[in-house]
Simulated scan of single mutants.
Amino acid sequence: MRIQAALVEATGGPFTLRDIDIEPPRADEILVRVTAAGICHTDLTTRSMWPEQLTPMVLGHEGTGVVEAVGADVTTIAPGDTVCLSFRSCGACPSCADGHPGYCAAFQGLNVSGGRGDGTSPLSRDGSSVFGGFFGQSSFATYAIAYESNTVKVPADLPPEVAAPLGCSVQTGAGAVRNVLRPEPGTSLVVFGTGAVGMSAIMASVALGCSPVVAVDPVASRRALAGELGAKATVDPSAVEDVAATIREATGGGAHFAVDTTAVPAVINQAIGALRPMGSLALAGIGAPEAALDVMSVIGKGLTVSGVIEGDARPADFLPWLIDRYREGKLPVDRLVTSYPFTEIETAAQAALSRQAIKPVVTFG
């Protein structure tokens, strides 16, 4: 079947719309007509460093849409279902069996190998393979192939612009709080970086009763929105001499919990400095290959530092919780979204890179 996709045709290149072909779903696959897809920092980082030998490539891992067809072995999803797409997992390794599919032993092959995991791709152009299978979906296209492990049924009346980001950025930020830090009501929490992941962490913290919630970001408009979403205090890190001391004062001796979404080593150490003894830090940002941590503070204050992939969430269980909070008005994801037609996907990508848009979402007419 002929579809339209946004290809990355060379490492670091722009998204370019091209007509390509997609295979019918195999026995374990699901064909989804994509209605919206969020643009995530991971998409933009990946295209800047994706190996040349694995181009052209279709990215996109925050898709939502309507199921068109399913393979013979698919039992939980049916044609006509409205679905949200997330990351793929094997379902059989120890991490998956324990309810932590974000740490699936086969994560790399199933999500970022350029194909299905067996070396093949359902996508092609003029008879030559187009790499895909990104997070088990490659949803920067009018149609995508997905799997039961990363396809979650959602209400048909859920706006596509809201549904799309749930599968990664919202899940990551909210999950870092609810699934990893697990704060009690009344405890303090600080979020460093207020992109879509950070804003989602703020909204989840407020929904769970944390107080005060503090947001740290140099962009004034984002600090203002964080305040509207429930942050009791905001900090401009470029305007204070000591970020950690400012947060300790705002939280009465240090925050109980912190979430870093920046992956900037200096900021991670500010988070460590902002915590009170026995505090916990969740690292939800991806980017820095290594960081020199203030280990003596971690040891001396008895801190817990946890890495977080995909909010340590099982999408089939967690996305309904997110949708319920959205319905209650406690997770207003729509406040983060700027919509663009799919034909303007590169404009949307540049808006994300320039921080003009918190969560760009491309929609398919």
Rank of each mutant, 00 (worst) to 15 (best):
G115S: 08
S297T: 13
E161L: 06
E344F: 06
R248K: 15
F134Y: 15
Y143W: 09
G279Q: 07
Q350N: 15
D21F: 09
V267G: 04
F257P: 15
F342T: 01
D73W: 05
A224D: 13
R355Y: 10
P183D: 00
A255S: 15
S354M: 09
G279P: 12
T234C: 01
M1W: 06
V267R: 00
L44W: 01
T64S: 05
A271R: 12
R33A: 13
P218V: 07
R276F: 05
T151F: 10
I299L: 12
A292N: 14
R47E: 00
I358A: 10
Y143L: 12
G273M: 09
I30P: 15
L322Y: 04
P315K: 11
L229T: 02
A349N: 06
A201E: 03
G127N: 13
V240I: 01
P320C: 01
A271W: 05
G311E: 03
P56V: 04
T338S: 10
P160F: 01
G285K: 07
V58H: 02
A105F: 09
L44V: 06
P122A: 05
D312C: 08
G117C: 03
L31S: 11
V243W: 10
Q356F: 04
M1F: 06
I77K: 06
S211Q: 11
Q4F: 04
L85R: 06
V154K: 00
M203V: 03
S149R: 10
A231T: 13
V259I: 08
C40N: 03
T142S: 07
V206I: 14
T234L: 03
V66E: 09
G60C: 12
D98V: 02
T172W: 00
T16Y: 06
R18P: 14
G99D: 09
H256K: 13
R325Q: 15
L208N: 11
A351Q: 03
S306G: 08
T363I: 02
S211P: 09
Y147R: 08
V240Y: 07
F342Y: 10
A231H: 08
A258K: 09
G287D: 00
G186Y: 02
T35R: 12
L336I: 01
V70I: 13
N111W: 07
A284G: 11
P51A: 02
E328F: 07
R33I: 05
D43W: 03
D242H: 07
A27N: 15
G273N: 10
E62M: 01
V170D: 00
E328K: 15
Y326F: 13
A146C: 13
L293Q: 04
E148C: 08
V83E: 08
R222D: 09
M49S: 11
F140T: 13
K232D: 09
R182Q: 13
V154N: 03
P155V: 10
F140C: 10
L208F: 14
A313Q: 11
T76I: 03
